[in-house]
Nucleic acid binder design. Structure first.
Length: 576
RNA sequence: GGGGCUGUGGUGCAGUUGGUUUAGCACACUGGCCUGUCAAGCCAGAGGCCGCGGGUUCGAGUCCCGUCAGCCCCGCCA
């Protein structure tokens, strides 16, 4: 039906007769001569129609046509430098319309005017846009490149079940009712966590998978109800081994796909350092701003708020002298994060000015602005976690406003996460997940001060976005039971939910660990997109709805009967 | 669960403090002209009662309340 892709026509095709198929990207009629840009997934080629060939062609935007003709050089002054095929054109001898479109809901062009809603409703049209094709091609390259790398490193690609057991902890599950077992449910896997550990116990040694993960939580620009993880697990490795492998994978990948040379090792920050210096466990290191702690110095000042606060930290922004309005705007954002207010003082012409100026002490200056640089110093007081959050936000907001980004790709490892954290009810919860191995030198704290125990957990952060998360797992059944009990689980609960995993550890479990980069976020960043929906072929809306296929939707009563389900709200039923 | 933004012909937008009657503009669409364009150009035409429901008013696209949908953020996402 065709001899070549439109966008791949080159010098070697000159003079050849080709058959092409594609969609009409634009149609320029000059009466005597007519031009059509024909588009397929590879790009564009200009078609030239003589009037006697064109006749009543019925060609409009997005008409699908097949053409036959000879590849010619364009007259030299008519070359289009913006197209890879710009030197050439196909002189059409014969053509036929394969499919004539009805009135289009929108025109699939890169500078798309249609709303996101409409693009999703007619996603197949949206996918014709060259930008979307490009994103999907890069996604494909990323997948192939990772496969090649992991294949070379002796990983086996193995699939694990999507229908699995519901779990009360962690994210909310998507439940799947069982027809054969009335009243019982599967859950769609939130991750292959336990299966991959069991693969290690099974002696697979190195495993990977592009795993779909399902989580029924509220969505964001970088979260979908189903997302893809590059799930990897290895036996007989230390944390250093995993970090090194992940770094080499990123180097290989970025070189392969983007022709970018990454420097390794990536910088490392402990969780605590990250929280103090950057106010977040996913710092954006494309710019240098650092937060400093001035709690001690502030408590000696004359300002009551500073004296009595658990924590005070400051951020000095060089060459930044914002207007009153800008500061108010920043302060409003701080307040939305729960901060009481924003202290600020400008330093220029050798003096501090602004509301914070009269409370600032030489000791504070010594820490926050030792080199006496001109700019603005911000400070926030309050609880440690609020202060960190507020200044972390301020840091990224200022960088955005002032466009302080000096690096394109800022990778950083965050390591030494606490093993536990306290939830709202004051209970111990795993910071990462339940199966993380504690740091060996912190084991003695498990009985006395478990909140201080660090886990062998690590995240890769890229440009302020969490890209990958992993840990060395706990393969020691006794220790694992102890951790469960610290979290307040009874033996019965442990056996019910995790019995099979603990059981497996009794029969020669290897030490193991792994890491799982999020494919969607990775590709989003590699394509410079702002939302993962731009790199997923058929994404859902923030309400987790499929606008094209119209899901979720009501079902017939008979289906519910088979599943032994009864609805409490009848509007859920089909036909109501 | 909470906060913010948006919703006007097929699409993207405009519509001033509620009142000029036929709600504008661009692109797409239809017809015509045009032999070198590449976001082609020119002429003509068809197409909307302003997301949905209620209210205020002599009068509402414009004000108020509710509701639905999309996006952004907080909570949440081991």
């Amino acid at each position: 039906m065709r001899s070549k892709y439109c966008g791949e026509i080159r010098d070697s095709d000159l003079g050849k007769d080709l058959t092409l198929v594609g969609w009409v990207n634009s149609n320029r009629q000059h009466g005597g001569i007519n031009f059509v840009d024909l588009r397929d997934r590879s790009g564009l080629i200009q078609l030239v129609f003589a009037p006697e060939v064109y006749k009543d062609a019925g060609i409009k935007l997005e008409t699908l046509i097949q053409v036959f003709g000879a590849v010619k050089l364009r007259p030299s002054e008519m070359v289009n430098p913006h197209l890879p095929t710009g030197k050439f054109e196909l002189e059409v001898q014969k053509f036929q319309v394969i499919s004539q479109p009805e009135h289009l809901p929108f025109i699939p062009e890169d500078e798309v005017k249609a709303s996101f809603e409409l693009r999703l409703q007619y996603r197949y049209l949206d996918l014709r846009r060259p930008l979307m094709v490009k994103n999907l091609i890069i996604r494909n390259k990323v997948i192939q490149s990772i496969r090649n790398f992991l294949e070379q490193h002796k990983f086996l690609e193995i699939e694990t079940p999507y229908l699995t057991s519901p779990t009360p902890e962690g994210a909310r599950d998507y439940l799947v009712p069982s027809r054969i077992h009335p009243g019982k449910f599967y859950a769609l896997a939130q991750s292959p966590q336990m299966y991959k550990q069991l693969l290690m116990v099974g002696g697979i040694d190195r495993y990977y998978q592009f795993a779909r993960c399902f989580r029924d939580e509220d969505l964001r620009a970088d979260r979908q109800p189903e997302h893809t993880q590059i799930d990897m697990e290895m036996s007989f490795v230390s944390q250093e081994d995993v970090l090194s492998l992940a770094e080499n994978l990123m180097v290989h990948l970025f070189n392969d796909v983007l022709d970018v040379n990454l420097e390794i090792p990536f910088p490392r920050l402990s969780y605590n350092q990250a929280m103090i210096k950057y106010g977040t466990d996913k710092p954006d290191l494309r710019f240098d701003l650092e937060i400093v702690d001035i709690t001690e110095q502030a408590q000696k000042s004359d300002m009551n708020i500073l004296k009595n606060s658990e924590c005070t930290r400051a951020l000095m922004v060089e060459n930044f002298l914002p207007s009153r309005k800008d500061i108010t705007e920043l302060e409003n954002q701080i307040k939305q994060q729960g901060g009481g207010g924003l202290l600020w003082t400008k330093y220029s012409e050798h003096k501090y000015s602004g509301p914070f100026a009269k409370f600032i002490t030489p000791e504070i200056i010594e820490i926050a602005n030792p080199d006496k640089r001109e700019g603005t110093m911000f400070a926030v007081s309050g609880s440690t976690s609020t202060v960190a959050k507020c200044l972390g936000l301020l840091r990224t907001e200022v960088a955005k406003k002032e466009n302080l980004y000096s690096k394109k790709w800022a990778f950083v490892w965050i390591v030494d996460f606490p093993l536990f954290e306290l939830n709202d009810q004051g209970q111990m919860e795993p910071c990462h997940h339940i199966f993380t191995m504690p740091h060996s030198e912190d084991l003695h704290l498990l009985d006395t001060d478990p909140i201080k125990v660090r886990g062998q957990q690590y995240d890769i952060v890229l440009n302020g976005i969490e890209l990958a998360s992993g840990s060395i797992r706990n393969h020691l059944p006794q220790l694992q039971r102890k951790l469960f009990s610290i979290m307040g689980l009874t033996d019965q609960q442990i056996d019910q939910r995790f019995g099979f995993l603990l059981e497996s550890f009794k029969y020669g479990a290897p030490p193991h660990g792994g890491i799982a980069p999020g494919l969607d976020r990775l590709v989003m960043q590699m394509t410079d997109m702002k939302s993962i929906t731009e790199v997923i072929a058929f994404p859902k809306t923030l309400q987790a709805a499929g606008l094209m296929e119209k899901c979720p939707r009501p079902v017939e009563q008979q289906l519910l009967n088979e599943l032994n389900l009864e609805l409490t709200k009848s509007e859920g039923l089909d036909g109501n």
